[in-house]
Design a binder for these strands. Sequence first.
DNA 1: GTCTATATATCGATAGAC
DNA 2: GTCTATCGATATATAGAC
Lengths: 219, 219
Amino acid sequence: MTQKSPVKQGSRAASPRKASIRRQNQAVILAAAEDVFAERGYAGASMSEIARRADLPKANLHYYFGTKEELYRAVLDDILTAWRHDMDGFRSDADPKQAVSAYIRLKLDFSHRRASGSKVFANEIIHGASVLGDALGDLVRAGIAGKDKVVDEWVTKGLIAPVDGRHFFIMLWAMTQHYADFEVQIRKVLGKEALTEADWREIAIQVETFVLRALCLPV
Amino acid sequence: MTQKSPVKQGSRAASPRKASIRRQNQAVILAAAEDVFAERGYAGASMSEIARRADLPKANLHYYFGTKEELYRAVLDDILTAWRHDMDGFRSDADPKQAVSAYIRLKLDFSHRRASGSKVFANEIIHGASVLGDALGDLVRAGIAGKDKVVDEWVTKGLIAPVDGRHFFIMLWAMTQHYADFEVQIRKVLGKEALTEADWREIAIQVETFVLRALCLPV
DNA sequence: GTCTATATATCGATAGAC
DNA sequence: GTCTATCGATATATAGAC
């Protein structure tokens, strides 16, 4: 499957220049695909439009990723890998206020900077995670990584107001993703043509204040 | 465009039996379309699948709704009409705790009962509201209907903790919609095969408690 | 108002020259 | 590794018999 080269050459690692071309083209295609999948959905996105956006011939997409579904999987995998490293501030010996504040800002910032990726994921879940399938269970477990137990522990110790750890994370994810995924609607509510960096700072303050107060932590 | 009848007859109102057939077929098609659009997205939904789900020949869908886009608009219109009547508990002379509690339960219950409609709307917004277009501005204004000002007034009077009325509604919508739209993910987090009525009651309690505490209202 | 058969368009995927 | 030309499948939409 990988030995399509007409001329024999030791291995792929023996040609670092070509490997670099490969990596760069894949990155360009992934970025274009993430945007198009976010704007049009999986079925609505066409390989031709992704190719146009990546400024490459359509056949090259199939050369690098095989099928449309494989490309879609690669986009999902890319965003989920980036997400996995977000929860590290949650340890039972950490200060609740610090951990919660940092996590909200991290999530909001990430949703904002990689809005397309966030939207692709949202779409996948809304449509029943038919492509992720059973892998979603593992992803959720990896994403929450027992941190709900840390929250439950804080509750037991009386450090925060009583809340179910799992629902706490669901509500946090709901708020932080919503501002990115529903940006078009947010803009209408706030009466803004576009959201500036200052708007995003205000959003962070609003969410942070709301959540800290819900946990009876000092604002 | 509507005078396709081969035989002339007074008017459509003159034939109440046919008008009833018309209304019922339209309702069946709308319900099927709402489900399919929710599961597959606009582009991914096919007229044949909607027809199959409605147990009608595909040509009848075009007879009643013309094009796929018109059918989609009708589905959106249907769900938005139902939403418009949800905000009536919010009046400045109402008791904040009562109003907030009732609203959360109303929204959650609605998201749950009309999950497909909620998902269709979420999809439309995530993809930039390209079909709703400028109409979204009016819809948002009608949806919030100045109720953010009521919240601001409660803050000024010292009845609730300080919060921006617009962000308050955004966060409320985020949480209530998220539980319906992301149900697949919620189930994984909670470790449930399906969400029962008891689960939904627990969800309502969790969200209500969280929000009331964020406003420094008695739980 | 119902339904079969079909015209037309578009998309995903690949063959094959370079 | 790149790119043009094209195949085959599927979707929307409609014509026309009933």
